[in-house]
Design a binder for these strands. Structure first.
Lengths: 227, 227
DNA sequence: CGACTACTTGAACAAAATCAAATGGGGTGG
DNA sequence: CCACCCCATTTGATTTTGTTCAAGTAGTCG
């Protein structure tokens, strides 16, 4: 595997604590596979043969409710994995996975992973830790979604993207605005208006380019500062 | 430990696949501890010494945002556990836990659990499965919260409580309505109005007593049936 | 150049939050 | 045992927030 790809896998949430030899053993001779944008990797209800790890690009996970309105339950980027549950427990996939950009995905064979897991407590523990972290981030998201009005959710999302805690930041939105909106549980229109409201808080948006004047300001607002 | 308590522990989400001898070893001589209603078990940010398993009663987990508005991130009843992450990874608690009824809680020593986990891949695998299930239910909840209007969320909640899939049901609400409202991400007022709307769908509420005429009807509504 | 797509903006509408007040038990102290 | 108070819940009126529907703008790609 390409050294750059390998670096992503090694630093992934799932495997960052796994030592290199073991990891090589788990992955075997698999390589990331390139997918065009818009490719469906698996459907809700499918049997999944392995854990999927995003090496590059972005994948959205969504569930189709009746009436076709689909709810986005997750968007995963480089270093993040999905399908763990279904692969490990051999249960049907809980959501549909579709690439939302060109993406390269490494699938780790479930059977192989399972056997290594049985033989290696450290690995199991690491994965447990990873699952816990995932759970935790889910709780955070739940909290945001419940409590906060739109503009504040957007502020939180932008702060996360910015990466740093203070100062200014310049970056690009990772994927389409309408998808971000879905992720944040709102319509594209609401998202657009929310961004407009953040403008006088030092957030400049031009196409997908974002500039945040003072991250502290934005974070204060997110965490509940009266205007 | 009391046989009835033991039965709850054995059938708990976390340990249902663990065999009895191992489970006894993990728990050691610990006993469930009784707490009065309103007792804070630990605070957001605390160090937690063990995994908490509800034997009887109910516990709410909530996060305090600034301004005191607290968001309920989970309510756990008999057989459910919480604090797994913090105990296993020795990280600060992510939420505050408080009993909302008289409750008996068994705490499983984290250190002990960790050591058994290392020695026993099956156990680790079982816990991984449990964590995955938890994650999955979280995703469901996320989806509900995002997509559905209030009355339908309430309908879903009631269907879950009813337990069965068809026919009629009579049961009591497990805890206060205002807490249920919080759990469902709405205000008590909205919850009350939502219940009122369900009345002409065959749901009768009198104090905490609930009677559902035909669960199928309610479920249809929850899953998106036009009226 | 023209059609398509993504995004923005506006107006009308719906849902839920908020503010405020009334109801109705349950429990307490007299 | 009864009157009274406290608190959870309900109900009503109002306002905010977000959705929906509709139109307009801009950038992209053939």
């Amino acid at each position: 595997m390409d050294p750059a790809d390998w670096a992503v896998v090694r630093r992934s949430a799932m495997f960052r604590t796994t030592d290199e030899a073991k990891l090589r053993d788990i992955i075997g001779d698999r390589h990331p596979r390139a997918h065009p944008r818009g490719q469906v990797l698996f459907l809700q209800g499918d049997h999944i043969d392995g854990l999927h790890l995003v090496v590059s690009g972005w994948v959205k996970l969504y569930r189709q409710t009746e009436e076709g309105a689909d709810a986005i339950v997750g968007i995963h980027g480089p270093g993040q994995s999905f399908g763990e549950t279904a692969a490990l427990l051999a249960t049907p996939a809980h959501a549909t996975a579709e690439t939302i950009s060109e993406a390269r995905i490494l699938t780790v064979d479930a059977e192989r992973l399972r056997s290594r897991l049985g033989a290696d407590p450290d690995l199991a523990f690491a994965m447990l830790a990873s699952a816990s972290m995932h759970l935790r981030s889910m709780v955070d998201e739940l909290e945001r979604l419940k409590g906060l009005p739109g503009p504040r959710r957007v502020a939180g999302f932008l702060c996360d993207l910015a990466g740093s805690d203070a100062g200014s930041a310049v970056f690009d939105l990772p994927y389409e605005k309408s998808l971000i909106a879905g992720r944040l549980g709102m319509t594209p229109e609401s998202f657009s208006r929310a961004l407009a409201k953040l403008r006088d808080r030092g957030v400049t948006i031009e196409r997908e380019h974002v500039r945040i004047a003072r991250i502290e300001n934005l974070r204060d607002f997110f965490e509940g500062e009266a205007a």
